[in-house]
C-alpha cells in the first residue's frame, strides 16, 4: 500500500507541474497584459512603465521561474484590482467554496447511492425506470434555473431559507441542493450499473450460498465492489463543484473562489486568475489521488497495479 501511495504521489506532482506551466502560459496567451492593465486611454509610455513595473519585459522563462518559485511557497503576489495579497484573497474565499462543495457532495451521495442500489436491486422494474427517469431529468435541468425556482419557492413564497449570503448553515442548503443535482444523475447511474454487475457476479452467488443476510450481501459484498467507479467519479464531481460553482455562487451571492475567479477574469486581474486556476487544479489533483488511494483500500487488486 505504501509503494502504491508513493507512486500515486509522484504522478500527482508531475501533473501539478504541468498544470502550473499551463496556467501561467494561458494568461500570457490572452494578449498583451500591460496594454490591458493600462486601460483604453493609456499612452505608449504608460504601457511601457506598467510593463517594467510588473516585470513583463523580462523573458518569459524568467517570469515563469520567478512566479513558480514564489507560488511553490504560497506567494502569488498582489492582485492588481483588489489591492490585496492574492493568497489572502483566496484564503478568505476558500471556506465558502469548500463548505458549498462538500455540502453538495454529501447531499449527492446521500441521494444517489441509495437510489442506485434500489434501482439495481429492482432492476427493470418500475422503480428502476423511475430512478432512471429522475436521473435523466436531473441531468437535463440547468442549475441556475433550478436555483431560481428553489429561491422563489423556499426563499420568497415559504420563507424557510435565506436566498443569499453566507451567514449561517441555512444559507448553504439551497445552493448545496442545486450543486448536488448536477452530480446526482451520474453517481446514481454509476451506483446502479456497478451494483447490477456486482449482484450478477459469482461471489454474490457464493455469498447467498453461505446464507448471509440480505444486508450483508448488498452492503458488504456488492457495494464495496460497486463503489470503485463511484468513488472515482465522486472525486471528479467534487472537483467540478469546487471549481465550477461560479454560476451557483453568483445566483446565491456566495463570495467563494468561483465568484473570485469570475471577477478577476472580467477585470483582467491575471495574478488572481493564475493563482485560482492553480489552486483549483491542485485540489483536483489531490482529490484524484485521494480517490485512487481510497479505491486501493477498497480493492486490494488495485494496489498491485
Amino acid at each position: 500500500m505504501l509503494r502504491f501511495a508513493l507512486r500515486r504521489l509522484a504522478v500527482a506532482l508531475l501533473v501539478a507541474l504541468t498544470v502550473m506551466t499551463l496556467s501561467f502560459l494561458l494568461t500570457r496567451l490572452s494578449g498583451d497584459l500591460a496594454i490591458s492593465i493600462a486601460g483604453a486611454g493609456a499612452t505608449p509610455e504608460d504601457v511601457a512603465i506598467i510593463r517594467r513595473a510588473y516585470g513583463l519585459d523580462r523573458p518569459l522563462v524568467a517570469q515563469f521561474l520567478d512566479w513558480a518559485g514564489r507560488a511553490a511557497v504560497g506567494d502569488f503576489g498582489d492582485s492588481y484590482f483588489f489591492k490585496a495579497r492574492v493568497s489572502t484573497l483566496i484564503a478568505e474565499r476558500m471556506p465558502v467554496t469548500l463548505t458549498l462543495g462538500l455540502t453538495g457532495l454529501a447531499i449527492a451521495l446521500a441521494v444517489s447511492i441509495p437510489l442506485g442500489i434500489l434501482a439495481a436491486v429492482r432492476e427493470a422494474s418500475w422503480v428502476d425506470r423511475l430512478v432512471q427517469l429522475v436521473a435523466m431529468v436531473g441531468q437535463a435541468m440547468p442549475s441556475f434555473w433550478l436555483g431560481l425556482i428553489l429561491m422563489i419557492t423556499f426563499g420568497l413564497r415559504l420563507g424557510w431559507l435565506p436566498i443569499s449570503g453566507t451567514g449561517s448553515w441555512e444559507h448553504y442548503v439551497m445552493p448545496g441542493v442545486v450543486l448536488a443535482f448536477s452530480a446526482i444523475p451520474a453517481l446514481t447511474r454509476l451506483t446502479r450499473s456497478g451494483m447490477i454487475q456486482a449482484l450478477g457476479s459469482d461471489y454474490i452467488r457464493t455469498a447467498r450460498a453461505k446464507g448471509l443476510s440480505r444486508l450483508s450481501i448488498l452492503g458488504k459484498h456488492a457495494l464495496r465492489n460497486a463503489a470503485i467507479p463511484v468513488v472515482s467519479i465522486a472525486a471528479v464531481q467534487l472537483g467540478f463543484m469546487l471549481g465550477g460553482s461560479i454560476v451557483i455562487e453568483t445566483v446565491f451571492a456566495l463570495h467563494g473562489v468561483g465568484f473570485l475567479a469570475w471577477e478577476s477574469i472580467s477585470k483582467n486581474d491575471f495574478p488572481v486568475v493564475q493563482a485560482v486556476v492553480l489552486v483549483l487544479a491542485l485540489i483536483y489533483i489531490a482529490l484524484t489521488m485521494a480517490a485512487d488511494l481510497l479505491n486501493g483500500l477498497l480493492d486490494p487488486r488495485l494496489r498491485a497495479a
Binding site: 457476479s201 461471489y203 457464493t206 450460498a209 446464507g211 464495496r224 486490494p300
Partner: peptide, 24 residues
C-alpha cells in the same frame, strides 16, 4: 432458507477464480 444455506447445506462452484469476493 438462508439459515439452512451455509450451515446445514453448503455449495461450491465451478469457477474458483471468481467465486470468492476480491475485496475481502
Amino acid at each position: 432458507l438462508s439459515a439452512l444455506r451455509g450451515d446445514r447445506m453448503a455449495m461450491i462452484f465451478q469457477e474458483p477464480m471468481t467465486s470468492l469476493n476480491p475485496a475481502y
